[in-house]
Design a protein around this nucleic acid. Structure first.
Length: 401
DNA sequence: GATGCCGGGAT
DNA sequence: ATCCCGGCATC
């Protein structure tokens, strides 16, 4: 009976071809293969991560402090965290750059581009400490991570890390740490030599900002130095050179540089923590407001109050630029070491605080059509015969009202 | 619960 | 652009 329909209906033959089911099967098959690939990839990524010189402090430690708040990813799958607590549940796509990174300018480690991998047995990594092994697999070694374009996989909530110059009246934004360092070195510090003669001073004059890649396009245009959507929680707001103010010898004339060495030793305990907490929040959709705001609820909800409200007690403030009425409010910020909240929870909180724009959709919604539509006429079993719009759950084109 | 279809994600 | 689907409104 199905065949009759198919045979007699050229429309169905032309557009439908019983594609949906087959396509879904194919998709499933592809997905299975993909899983295998993921296993391999995950192993490689793991290996390179654990051996990479870039990872100064083993991420293991970072995560231990979290008491496994993400370990229930569900995606850890066959990977047994219990056998090796050091690596279990360690790849959520937490952005480690949120933590203060001791010395590196917290490069786009592209941690946000990792999906929660399922990791198979992984050979020897399982029971033992996430030991170094097979250094030959370093296809993304530290240098490429540092200086290449992050090339983050486009994911839903993926954040793109940019680097913004904090020099007074500059505000230049570049996509790589190396680029911004060079910019600062040459433009502001007046040094012509290359990075090898740098003492790391540039680190103080730029900061990371994270953008939602979905809105980067228009967000970038608002990244001008005076953009109101840029904010910096940690340093006192009035100063245009927040992190510089914390330097021992802070007020340097923005042109001459060679006389003062704020941290002649080279090591700067405060160099990284402050800038890494500066964010740009730009979203054109209230639901997607994944503001990287820190919410004090890192482990469980013992605090109880964190999920639905946070009280603006502190002085640090952040603002969120909405599409329609811009909303600005203040909230307490946690020390960087505790900033763990993530997309969902944060967005929920923000959504609560702002007015949800639900009503507009209801208003503009078309009144439901009276007549029978493809679905009704042909039924689910003859979905091939529906008009494409119906198949795509759009407004029916065949039986218009 | 079934249906129509908007909004938006994936490719 | 095409395809698909979550989710909402309505029946």
């Amino acid at each position: 009976m199905r065949l009759e329909h198919m045979g007699g209906n050229t429309l169905a033959l032309q557009s439908g071809k019983a594609r949906p089911k087959r396509r879904r099967e194919e998709a499933d098959r592809l997905r299975e293969e993909e899983v295998d690939m993921d296993k391999v990839t995950a192993a490689m990524v793991l290996t390179s991560l654990s051996t990479s010189p870039l990872v100064r402090s083993p991420p293991v430690k970072v995560n231990e402090g979290l008491s496994g708040s993400w370990k229930d990813n569900g995606s850890t799958g066959p990977f047994t965290p219990s056998s090796n607590s050091s690596s279990g549940g360690y790849w959520s796509w937490s952005a480690p750059s949120d933590q203060s990174n001791p010395s590196t300018p917290s490069p786009p480690l592209s941690a946000d581009s990792f999906k929660p991998f399922r990791v198979p047995s992984l050979g020897g990594v399982g029971p033992g400490p996430a030991g170094p092994e097979d250094p030959s697999l370093d296809e993304q070694d530290g240098s490429s991570l540092l200086f290449d374009e992050p090339i983050p996989r486009k994911r839903k909530n993926s954040m793109k890390v940019m680097f913004k110059c904090l020099w007074k009246n500059c505000g230049k934004v570049l996509s790589t740490a190396a680029g911004i360092q060079r910019h600062i070195r040459t433009i502001h510090l007046g040094r012509n030599c290359d990075s090898d003669c740098s003492d790391g001073e540039e680190d103080f004059y730029y900061t990371e900002i994270k953008l939602n890649t979905d809105s980067v396009a228009d967000g970038l245009s608002s990244l001008s130095p005076v953009s109101p959507s840029v904010l910096s929680p940690p340093p006192p707001p009035p100063s245009p050179l927040p992190s510089i103010n914390q330097l021992p010898d802070s007020h340097r004339p923005p042109q001459s540089s060679d006389t003062k060495e704020p941290h002649a030793g080279g090591t700067t305990p405060l160099s990284r923590s402050a800038p890494s907490a500066l964010y740009l929040i730009h979203t054109d959709h209230a639901y997607q407001a994944t503001a990287p705001v820190s919410i004090p609820s890192s482990s469980s909800n013992s605090a109880g109050s964190a999920s639905t409200s946070f009280t603006p007690t502190n002085s640090s403030s952040f603002s969120i630029s909405w599409q329609s009425p811009p909303v600005t409010f203040t909230g307490n910020t946690v020390s960087p070491s505790k900033s763990q909240g993530f997309g969902e929870q944060r967005s929920q909180t923000i959504a609560v605080l702002s007015s949800p724009p639900r009503a507009t959709t209801a208003l503009s919604r078309k009144v439901r059509g009276e007549g029978k539509k493809c679905r009704k006429v042909y039924g689910m079993e003859n979905r091939d015969m529906w008009c494409t719009a119906c198949r795509w759950k759009k407004a029916c084109q065949r039986f218009t009202d």
